[in-house]
Amino acid sequence: MLEVCVDTIDGVIAAMNGGAGRVELCSSLSEGGLTPSAGLMHAAAAIPVPCYAMIRPRSGLFEFSDAEASIMLADIAMVREAGLAGVVLGAQNAARGLNVPMLATLMAAAGDLGTTLHRVIDVVPEPLVALSQAIDLGFERVLTSGAEPFAQDGTKLIAQMVTQAAGRISIMPGCGLTADNVAEVIAVTGVQEVHASCNVRVAGDLAFSDFDPPSGRFETSEMRVREMVNQMSGKN
């Protein structure tokens, strides 16, 4: 299973056409992925590939205020209204560990929606403790780079997570994975699903302000999705 993170409706379509099994729907991937708009949620729900919406009200790390938690609850309600398949969540406490009470509230709001714990697990002091907490909270899966900048460098911890999970939760490596390294990461860790952006840089347009990044912006590439799916299935 390949999950592709996207922040446009064209990205959803490219991921689907390339063979992705699931989409992580975001806005502002340049900020690490924020909550998508209601319009994007509704548009993605009409496309026949499961989409999980990122629930993250701002950039930065994940110690959220009560006011921000209320926004996240409203966004989860919008995910349900739009008819998406699931949500992607994460929250930290003042000690940088998982904020278990807040996550329990968000999980209760998610109800029967699918749930992924995002890469908050890569910035907590004890990722394996956080993994046990995620299992107890009822998450379906954890997205992780193995507490390294790139998942291909975090395979030791990812493999430990797979062993500890023992089938109770899926461990999904993500960040830095491409068609060139995905097969090796799967082989070393024993995971069953991975996460990638599969994007390419496109030239920006000249403007009097920063409407378009001078160095170009990123778009999901159907070709890169297909290349990665082929590597995962041995059709290289």
Rank of each mutant, 00 (worst) to 15 (best):
S59Q: 14
A43E: 09
N199V: 09
T35W: 13
V79L: 05
A207S: 15
G176D: 02
V4R: 12
D210V: 13
I71L: 13
S170Q: 06
G114V: 08
E81A: 14
V202G: 12
I55S: 03
L128N: 00
G60K: 14
L98A: 00
A43C: 09
G167E: 00
V88W: 10
I135Y: 00
A165G: 02
G60Q: 11
E140P: 06
A110R: 05
I76S: 09
T144M: 03
S30Q: 10
A74G: 15
S30F: 10
F62Q: 00
A69W: 11
R96T: 00
G234Q: 04
P101L: 10
N99K: 01
E219L: 14
Q160C: 09
N99G: 04
G33A: 14
L2C: 04
V142F: 00
Q192S: 09
T189D: 05
G33T: 06
A77L: 15
G11A: 10
G97Y: 01
S215L: 11
A110S: 06
Q160A: 13
V188I: 10
P149V: 01
D153A: 07
A91V: 02
R201G: 10
S145K: 04
G39D: 08
G60F: 10
A94E: 05
I13T: 13
G114I: 06
S233G: 05
A110G: 08
V225K: 14
V202K: 14
L113N: 07
P127Q: 02
G111V: 12
V79T: 05
N17R: 11
E140D: 14
I171S: 01
T189I: 07
D7S: 08
L89C: 04
A95D: 08
I171W: 01
M161A: 03
T178L: 05
V182W: 02
L40K: 11
M232A: 08
P36W: 03
A95Q: 04
V229H: 09
A109C: 15
Q231P: 08
M16C: 11
S70E: 14
V88N: 08
D153V: 04
F218D: 15
E184C: 06
A166F: 00
T163S: 04
N199K: 12
F62Y: 01
E222R: 14
E227M: 10
S28W: 09
G154D: 02
V202A: 12
G174W: 01
T163C: 03
D10L: 13
G216S: 08
R58H: 03
A77D: 15
E81R: 15
G97V: 01
G21V: 02
Q152V: 06
I55F: 05
G21M: 03
R80L: 10
E126Y: 00
V23Y: 06
R217A: 15
L84T: 13
M102L: 06
M54V: 09
F208S: 14
P48I: 08
L177V: 05
G60W: 08
V129A: 09
Q152S: 06
T116V: 06
L89W: 02
T155H: 03
N93I: 00
G154N: 03
K235R: 12
D122V: 00
F211I: 13
D122I: 00
P125R: 01
C26A: 10
V23R: 03
S197T: 07
G190Y: 01
E63L: 13
Q133N: 01
I135S: 02
M41C: 09
I121W: 00
V23D: 05
H42F: 07
G176W: 03
F208L: 14
L29G: 02
C51Q: 11
